[in-house]
Design a binder for these strands. Structure first.
Lengths: 153, 153
DNA sequence: CATAATTGGACCAGAACAGTACTGTTTCCT
DNA sequence: AGGAAACAGTACTGTTCTGGTCCAATTATG
């Protein structure tokens, strides 16, 4: 379906929320403020920590914090952190393709991959937060939450 | 992994090959000329027929034929035919998202989806064929990719 | 009209993913 | 110090989806 994993979706949500507060935040708090199940959000944060997207603080009073400002994190980076490399086909450069000699289109997919990657790299998490481009949202859309309507959990 | 199904890859290969002959072609013939297993190529063509990408002729002496010239078929169309709609998340407009009220980013993904769709719509099957870099099959070299074929509209 | 060729649709097996749970390590607070 | 809180890593389970196979409907041909 050419859809990215739900984990990635969660990652973006959590990261945007995380970018709205400067102090470290724990998984349970993030879970409550985003609506994502606690184990899942914990898993996502864990992965993001290993990829350097967020920095973690262990121990009591620990939590997670954005390693970079939202403006510096592209959607592509998040996708690559969670879902792995962005390669539409297995026929990428270096990949093994048994029908390579007969398929006739060499590595044309690289062009497509590059296009996708470029489009995804141009959008940052800040773009996801600032509702700049999207007034055309016909449906229900959420008010731009002032600042953490939870935090006092 | 943000990769599309192998079926889609096969579809592109089969379509490009199909575009190189004007008469109707059967699945077995296409299988032999592409290297794709017969049942698989048959399945792919079947799906493409239902989506109107190719026209089919049942019965003896039947086969498949391109419904549109290669130049008129975009990669996006093929992907949508095989993999379904291009929607990176389930949170698209009209989709059901239980965490919609809390995720905080309304339908920002639509912007990302649109970017992807645009990038994919700009590449046609003719672009996949016409290509001059098919000479280096064994090597891994990325085609000229200045800044993305067309992603910045 | 019978036969053969070919598409059309349904079915089944395998893998990949999402989600959950558990255990271990680290750090703060009392 | 001792206990509690929170991250880190691993393992497991259930579900979904892709990929592949088989049988039925259809049509030209002899």
């Amino acid at each position: 379906m050419l859809k990215l994993s739900k984990l990635t979706d969660y990652a973006v949500v959590a990261l945007v929320r995380l970018g709205q507060k400067s102090e470290v935040t724990t998984s349970p708090v993030l879970s409550r403020s985003t609506g994502i199940p606690e184990p899942t959000v914990a898993k996502v944060l864990k992965i993001l920590a290993t990829q350097g997207i967020v920095s973690s603080q262990r121990g009591a009073r620990g939590g997670y914090r954005l390693a970079r400002p939202l403006e510096e994190i592209s959607i592509a980076a998040v996708i690559q952190a969670i879902d792995g490399p962005i390669s539409l086909t297995t026929c990428v450069d270096g990949g093994d393709c048994d029908a390579r000699s007969t398929c006739g289109l060499g590595g044309q997919w690289d062009m497509v991959n590059a296009a996708i990657r470029h489009a995804l790299s141009a959008i940052t998490l800040a773009d996801m937060k600032n509702h700049t481009v999207t007034d055309r949202l016909g449906g229900l859309h959420v008010p731009p939450m002032p600042d953490g309507p939870e935090a006092t959990a």
